[in-house]
Structure formats: C-alpha cells, structure tokens
Amino acid sequence: MDLFQKKLGAVFDVELLGDKWHTGILVDAGQDILVLYNGERYIYIPSFHILNVSLNTKKSSTDFSALTEKPINSDKISYRKILMNSKGVFTEIFVSGYQPIHGYITHIMTNYFEFYSPVYKTMFIPLNHLKWLVPYSDYQTPYQLDKKFFPVNPSDLPLSRSFEEQLKKLEGKLVVFDLGRSPNKIGLLKEIENNVVHMITAEGRTFYTNIQHIKSVHSPTM
C-alpha cells in the first residue's frame, strides 16, 4: 500500500469488511497499514480488512482540527512495527461485533498478540482479525483509573509461538470466543484437532468451530 504515500494529507473514506467506515486525513501509509486522523484520534488500519479506499471530495484537511502529535511514531511503518511500538500504551482495538476493547498490548507472537483488558483480563487475538487500533495519549488510562490502582497483570500462562498452539493450552478449561457474542461462543474447550475446535456449551450442546474464524479468546481461568 506504499502507493498511498503520494496521497498523504488528502482526506479519504476507508471501507472495511463488515460495513465499517472511517473518514480522515491520511497521515501515514505502509505496505500493510494505513493511518488516518479523524480530527480527534489517530486510527491505525491494517490492510487485511480494507475493502475500498476512496478520496472524499466533500471534505478537505481544513475541516479537521489541527493535527496533534502521533502517539506512535515509526520511520517506516508496518503493521507489526505499530503493534511493537504500542506495547504498554493504553489502546482501543476493534476485533468483532460493535464493541471495541480497551487495554494494553503485552506480547506479540508469530500470528497473534496478547492483550490485557481491565474488563476481560488476558486475551489472545489473531493478527489477521484486528480491524483497527487507536492508541491514546501517555497520560490516559482505561476508565480514568488511577495508575497505582491499575496494575497490568497478564496471565502467567506461558505463551506459544502460534495461536493454535496457545489454544491447545486451554483444553479442558472454560473459554469465551469473540467476546461471547452468541451462546455457542462460551463453553468448555474440549479439544483441538486439525484446526477444528471442539466446544461444549453450558446446555451440553457440542459445537465444532474452524479456528481460522475465532477472533478473540479469553478465559475466567486466566
């Protein structure tokens, strides 16, 4: 997506899969990520979910408030570099449904990252399911909690290199997929075989889920 380097400063509409939209000034672009400023926040959008990008002919950069200092800086940006530079920064991420998640990126592995949320605690999120990321200023904390009352305590569960291997460590435990958007997303993770997850719900129903479609995982045991 380096071709967008020539369009920095222009206003774009970015359409994402799932009928999601962002409009803002294009302030940076890498091979696999775009950065928009919407007048209030910087939005980092990985290319995985970008469906269309079009110039907005009704707005100009003067329609947005003055640019503030970017919370994350990198000479030549990429999706992985942005994740690395976001570690320890209070961040909003959007993965699925209609509800963003707030917290901190704590570790980045081969194809997933560990995220600590004060609400959901430790979460595992595949890299290809992050739709966008919004880092906050250094002085901001989730829910305006005082930093001394908000320790970041990720799970002590050892991290595997791949998302699939990490889920194997949760076999026999209660898990929640995709923030529990439906009853078949919450249950006992019985086993994983050939990228198929075998789960048993509270009602005793059995579901088999393709691991490639799991967008986030957290567990009350972590």
Score class of each variant (00 low, 15 high):
Glu92Tyr: 05
Lys87Ile: 15
Pro158Arg: 01
Asp28Ser: 15
Ser78Trp: 02
Met199Gly: 06
Gln212Ala: 03
Ile108Trp: 12
Met199Lys: 14
Thr122Asn: 02
Pro46Leu: 05
Arg181Glu: 09
Leu188Arg: 15
Phe115Lys: 00
Val134Ile: 15
Met84Arg: 12
Asn38Phe: 01
Ile214Lys: 06
Pro220Thr: 11
Asp63Glu: 14
Asn85Gln: 11
Thr141Arg: 13
Phe150Ala: 15
Ala29Trp: 05
Thr91Pro: 07
Thr110Arg: 14
Ser54Val: 05
Ser182Leu: 05
Asn111His: 05
Val11Ile: 08
Ser47Phe: 01
Ser137His: 06
Pro142Arg: 01
Ser86Met: 12
Tyr112Lys: 00
Asp178Asn: 14
Leu133Ile: 15
Thr221Pro: 06
Trp21Val: 07
Leu3Glu: 08
Met199Glu: 07
Asn56Glu: 05
Ile108Gly: 07
Leu8Cys: 10
Lys190Ala: 04
Leu67Arg: 10
Gly204Thr: 05
Tyr44Leu: 14
Ser74Ile: 14
Met84Gly: 08
Val176Phe: 03
Ser47Tyr: 01
Gln144Asp: 11
Thr62Trp: 08
Ile77Val: 15
Val119Met: 12
Pro126Trp: 05
Ser216Gln: 13
Ile101Val: 14
Asp138Ile: 14
Val14Ile: 02
Ala202Phe: 11
Ile72Lys: 10
Phe163Cys: 01
Ser96Cys: 09
Trp21Pro: 02
Val119His: 13
Asn128Phe: 01
Arg80Gln: 08
Val196Gly: 05
Gly204Asn: 05
Gly30His: 06
Lys168Ile: 01
Thr209Phe: 09
Glu40Asn: 06
Ile77Phe: 08
Leu26Cys: 04
Asp28Trp: 08
Thr106Ser: 09
Asp63Ile: 11
Val197Lys: 03
Ser78Met: 04
Val95Leu: 07
Met84Phe: 14
Lys20Pro: 05
Ser219Glu: 04
Ser216Trp: 13
Phe113Thr: 04
Pro126Asn: 01
Phe4Trp: 12
Ala66Gly: 11
Leu130Asp: 01
Leu159Lys: 02
Phe48Val: 02
Asn128Val: 00
Asp63Tyr: 06
Glu69Thr: 08
Ser65Lys: 10
Pro220Asp: 01
Met1Pro: 03
Pro183Gln: 04
Thr221Ser: 14
Gly172Met: 01
Asn128Arg: 02
His213Gly: 03
Arg181His: 13
Gly180Arg: 02
Phe207Ser: 09
Leu145Trp: 03
Val27Lys: 09
Tyr112Met: 00
Lys121Val: 07
Asp13Thr: 07
Val134Ala: 12
Asp146Ala: 15
Pro71Val: 11
Glu69Tyr: 12
Ser216Met: 14
His49Cys: 06
Ser61Cys: 11
Gln212Thr: 05
Thr141Met: 07
Thr209Leu: 10
Tyr120Gln: 02
Glu15Ile: 12
Arg205Asp: 15
Leu170His: 05
Phe12Thr: 00
Leu157Thr: 13
His22Lys: 08
Arg205Lys: 10
Leu179Ile: 09
Thr62Gly: 13
Met199His: 10
Glu191Met: 13
Gly103Tyr: 00
Gly97Leu: 03
Lys148Met: 09
Met109His: 12
Met84Pro: 04
Val134Gly: 07
Phe113His: 03
Val152Asn: 06
Asn56Pro: 02
Ile192Gln: 01
Asp28Arg: 13
Phe163Pro: 00
Ser117Thr: 06
Val11Asn: 10
Leu145His: 08
His102Trp: 06
Leu159Val: 02
Ser47Thr: 02
Met222Gln: 13
Glu193Asn: 13
Gln144Lys: 08
Leu188Asp: 13
